[in-house]
Design a protein around this nucleic acid. Structure first.
Lengths: 247, 247
DNA sequence: CTGAAAAGTTAGCCATATCTAATACTGCGT
DNA sequence: ACGCAGTATTAGATATGGCTAACTTTTCAG
């Protein structure tokens, strides 16, 4: 029987992601665009994954993960997010690059190494973008909070999560200081999905609606801190950061 | 034209290693056993590598690396040894496991990450087994010293390098304290490739000839330190080491 | 309710990297 | 100088994963 290759891991992760964000049931086309492969490639891989009992699938019927498939997917997500946090915290990889690096490293993490990373980071719960790290048993904390674009004028909040899907945009958001843990205040919100004027760490910035919706925030901590609340992964790195000449 | 896949990297590294240790010219059979693949697999890959101008090859004539091939090989070796040192120093991966982990990580190291690792480790020159780390330009320091098995009774020496080819044996050598930087004295050497009695850090051990020849030593530092001499990669890890329950 | 657009599948092909079995070379010992 | 043992190559097959082109099914708009 076929084994869990890197391609298998990529498909399971993609399907998990899509079903996590969209609905339970995932279409062939969505998988194809997520992985940037053709639809026929997806069909054939999905047949294979079904034969491995990692997902449910009927012709023209979309797919859902089985518990076994979800378990593997969450393992990869765990690897990915552990590496992201490690690279950010210990090696000073810039936030907008950690996703790309972790994309390759996630497939290369033995159990021993995973344990060492986990310990080294002090049993972390969230990656540097604010996404929860699945536990070894597959438990996943929910992402609480609402999109920055939904806030009304005058609201205070703390950034809980910043989407990492687009490195360009993330890079820009980071340059504004909009990263997990940042305290912000909406000074003005234009109507009709208009841009927001946001105060971030003393400076004022105007942020378009699309960008603002990549940022998830939670109520400001001036209100009673909700139990289990946390503000970002901590300070970035102490040393070793890429600085100076960058070939 | 074909690209530099992981398989290509593995072949180039193997060929480099064989030509580094044995002669310039490497046979198909040696490559096959080094990589644990069949001889026909090697023949076909070698034809491909020739078409990529990474090595010279004539039917029945063995192979030698071209400068381009050697450059890629040394890049992989550099990645491998950087990861080994990083894992050992910063994550506390046991010495006998770093080779295996680095075997997978070596193929996954971007230029940015390589630079961060290098800086974090302070521009290191040797990996934790005592092997030199090729410079970014491909320069490689020679391994100086002689095999422990060659020493005469009464000689003092410092371990310069311990072979990592066999994790079992390495594990044992480590348990004796025979790792780079250790000061030793040969108390007795039995004739005819016989075992050695060696004093290591206060304790006395008997080491068979085969094992002893995996250890390369240099003159003891009581003599004037030769310029550029170094003693091991430094202390292992400070924290985060695998300890306690190991599932 | 129907037909065209969208989505999905099948068919057939390509590239990579392996393998076994059969064949061809090389070189060494006598 | 010759044959044989060892080494290497060719032939042909397999497995994985991806693609395009052609066809089928589903869905949705009118």
């Amino acid at each position: 029987m076929p084994s869990v290759t890197q391609a298998v891991e990529d498909y399971l992760k993609a399907i998990w992601r899509l079903s996590h964000e969209g609905g339970e049931r995932v279409s062939v086309g969505d998988i194809a665009s997520e992985l940037k492969v053709s639809a026929p490639s997806v069909t054939s891989m999905v047949r294979k994954l079904k034969s491995m009992r990692l997902l449910n699938y009927e012709r023209y019927g979309g797919v859902t993960l089985t518990p076994r498939g979800r378990k593997i997917a969450l393992e990869i997500v765990r690897h990915h997010r552990l590496w992201e946090l490690y690279l950010y915290m210990r090696l000073g990889v810039p936030l907008e690059l950690v996703d790309g690096e972790a994309e390759r490293l996630e497939h290369v993490l033995s159990d021993d190494m995973e344990e060492l990373l986990t310990r080294n980071l002090g049993d972390p719960t969230h990656d540097p973008h604010g996404d929860p790290i699945p536990s070894k048993t597959g438990a996943l904390a929910p992402v609480e909070g609402i999109a920055l674009g939904q806030l009304e004028t005058g609201t205070h909040a703390v950034v809980a999560r910043v989407s990492d899907r687009n490195p360009e945009k993330l890079r820009y958001l980071v340059s504004l200081g909009l990263l997990p843990g940042a305290r912000i205040e909406v000074e003005e919100k234009a109507p009709f999905r208009g841009p927001l004027t946001v105060r971030i760490g003393g400076r004022r910035h105007v942020v378009g609606a699309d960008l603002a919706n990549l940022v998830i925030v939670r109520g400001a901590p001036q209100a009673s801190r909700s139990p289990g609340a946390r503000r970002g992964p901590g300070v970035p790195p102490r040393s070793g950061k890429l600085r100076g000449k960058r070939r």
